[in-house]
Protein backbone atom coordinates (compact mmCIF):
# COMPACT_ATOMS: atom_id res chain seq x y z
CA UNK A 1 0.00 0.00 0.00
CA UNK A 2 1.29 3.41 -0.94
CA UNK A 3 1.58 6.07 1.78
CA UNK A 4 -0.18 9.40 1.48
CA UNK A 5 1.61 11.81 -0.84
CA UNK A 6 3.21 14.69 1.08
CA UNK A 7 0.82 17.23 -0.43
CA UNK A 8 -2.15 15.49 1.17
CA UNK A 9 -0.57 15.13 4.60
CA UNK A 10 -1.25 17.56 7.45
CA UNK A 11 1.47 19.94 8.49
CA UNK A 12 1.68 19.24 12.19
CA UNK A 13 2.41 21.95 14.73
CA UNK A 14 3.23 21.46 18.40
CA UNK A 15 1.96 23.93 20.99
CA UNK A 16 4.00 24.05 24.16
CA UNK A 17 1.93 25.01 27.20
CA UNK A 18 2.08 25.36 30.94
CA UNK A 19 -0.64 24.87 33.53
CA UNK A 20 -1.10 27.56 36.20
CA UNK A 21 -2.79 26.36 39.37
CA UNK A 22 -2.28 25.86 43.09
CA UNK A 23 -2.39 22.09 42.60
CA UNK A 24 -0.26 19.80 40.44
CA UNK A 25 -2.09 17.67 37.91
CA UNK A 26 -1.48 14.35 36.22
CA UNK A 27 -1.29 13.94 32.43
CA UNK A 28 -4.62 12.10 32.29
CA UNK A 29 -6.42 14.88 34.19
CA UNK A 30 -5.03 17.58 31.88
CA UNK A 31 -5.97 15.69 28.70
CA UNK A 32 -9.44 14.95 30.11
CA UNK A 33 -9.99 18.69 30.79
CA UNK A 34 -8.65 19.76 27.36
CA UNK A 35 -10.74 17.14 25.55
CA UNK A 36 -13.88 18.12 27.47
CA UNK A 37 -13.53 21.85 26.72
CA UNK A 38 -12.66 21.13 23.07
CA UNK A 39 -15.73 18.90 22.70
CA UNK A 40 -17.91 21.64 24.23
CA UNK A 41 -16.58 24.37 21.95
CA UNK A 42 -15.57 22.86 18.61
CA UNK A 43 -17.21 19.45 18.79
CA UNK A 44 -16.00 16.07 17.59
CA UNK A 45 -15.58 17.26 13.99
CA UNK A 46 -13.50 20.21 15.17
CA UNK A 47 -11.28 17.91 17.22
CA UNK A 48 -10.82 15.60 14.24
CA UNK A 49 -10.09 18.51 11.87
CA UNK A 50 -7.58 19.97 14.32
CA UNK A 51 -5.92 16.53 14.76
CA UNK A 52 -5.79 17.36 18.46
CA UNK A 53 -3.69 15.22 20.80
CA UNK A 54 -1.70 15.62 24.00
CA UNK A 55 1.78 14.40 23.08
CA UNK A 56 3.62 14.89 26.33
CA UNK A 57 3.14 16.29 29.83
CA UNK A 58 5.79 16.86 32.45
CA UNK A 59 4.06 16.45 35.80
CA UNK A 60 6.82 18.08 37.86
CA UNK A 61 7.12 21.23 35.72
CA UNK A 62 3.44 21.15 34.67
CA UNK A 63 4.44 21.76 31.08
CA UNK A 64 3.14 19.89 28.08
CA UNK A 65 2.84 19.60 24.33
CA UNK A 66 -0.32 19.58 22.22
CA UNK A 67 -0.31 18.44 18.60
CA UNK A 68 -2.47 20.17 16.04
CA UNK A 69 -2.12 21.27 12.42
CA UNK A 70 -1.26 24.58 10.80
CA UNK A 71 -4.88 25.51 10.07
CA UNK A 72 -6.10 25.06 13.63
CA UNK A 73 -3.44 26.71 15.78
CA UNK A 74 -5.56 29.70 16.75
CA UNK A 75 -8.69 27.59 17.21
CA UNK A 76 -6.79 25.35 19.64
CA UNK A 77 -5.38 28.39 21.45
CA UNK A 78 -8.93 29.73 21.78
CA UNK A 79 -10.15 26.39 23.10
CA UNK A 80 -7.40 26.07 25.71
CA UNK A 81 -7.96 29.67 26.83
CA UNK A 82 -11.56 28.78 27.71
CA UNK A 83 -10.43 26.17 30.20
CA UNK A 84 -11.14 27.50 33.69
CA UNK A 85 -10.75 24.46 35.93
CA UNK A 86 -9.12 21.04 35.99
CA UNK A 87 -10.55 18.40 38.32
CA UNK A 88 -12.75 21.09 39.96
CA UNK A 89 -9.66 23.19 40.85
CA UNK A 90 -9.28 26.69 39.33
CA UNK A 91 -6.58 26.50 36.70
CA UNK A 92 -5.69 27.85 33.29
CA UNK A 93 -3.45 26.95 30.40
CA UNK A 94 -0.91 29.39 29.00
CA UNK A 95 0.46 28.59 25.56
CA UNK A 96 4.17 29.30 25.35
CA UNK A 97 5.33 28.69 21.80
CA UNK A 98 4.46 26.89 18.59
CA UNK A 99 7.02 24.69 16.86
CA UNK A 100 7.13 22.49 13.80
CA UNK A 101 8.90 19.54 15.38
CA UNK A 102 8.83 17.83 18.78
CA UNK A 103 12.62 18.06 18.97
CA UNK A 104 12.56 21.84 18.64
CA UNK A 105 9.82 22.23 21.25
CA UNK A 106 12.01 20.41 23.79
CA UNK A 107 14.83 22.81 23.04
CA UNK A 108 17.22 20.06 21.91
Amino acid sequence: MKPYPPTLMDNDRYIQFTVHSDKKFKQADVWKAIYKIAKENIGLKGIADANLALIDFNETEQKGLIRTNTKSIYIVKGVTSMLAEIESTPAFIQTLRVTGTIKKSRGV
Binding site: H20, S21, N41, Y74, I75, V76, K77, G78, V79, T80, S81, M82, A84, P90, A91, F92, I93, Q94, T95
Partner: peptide
Protein backbone atom coordinates in the same frame (compact mmCIF):
# COMPACT_ATOMS: atom_id res chain seq x y z
CA UNK B 1 -12.44 38.66 38.94
CA UNK B 2 -9.41 36.66 40.00
CA UNK B 3 -5.91 35.66 39.01
CA UNK B 4 -6.96 32.39 37.38
CA UNK B 5 -9.41 34.15 35.09
CA UNK B 6 -6.57 35.98 33.37
CA UNK B 7 -5.08 34.78 30.09
CA UNK B 8 -1.82 35.32 28.23
CA UNK B 9 -1.86 37.78 25.27
CA UNK B 10 -1.72 35.18 22.52
CA UNK B 11 -4.44 33.11 24.20
CA UNK B 12 -6.72 36.15 23.99
CA UNK B 13 -5.90 36.22 20.27
CA UNK B 14 -7.30 32.69 20.07
CA UNK B 15 -10.66 33.99 21.24
CA UNK B 16 -10.70 36.21 18.16
CA UNK B 17 -10.64 33.10 15.98
CA UNK B 18 -13.96 32.00 17.49
CA UNK B 19 -15.80 35.23 16.85
CA UNK B 20 -14.65 35.89 13.31
CA UNK B 21 -11.63 38.15 13.75
CA UNK B 22 -8.53 37.45 11.73
CA UNK B 23 -5.25 36.79 13.51
CA UNK B 24 -3.96 40.28 12.74
CA UNK B 25 -7.18 41.96 13.84
CA UNK B 26 -7.09 40.06 17.16
Amino acid sequence: KGKYGMRAPLDLVGIGAFIGLTENQA
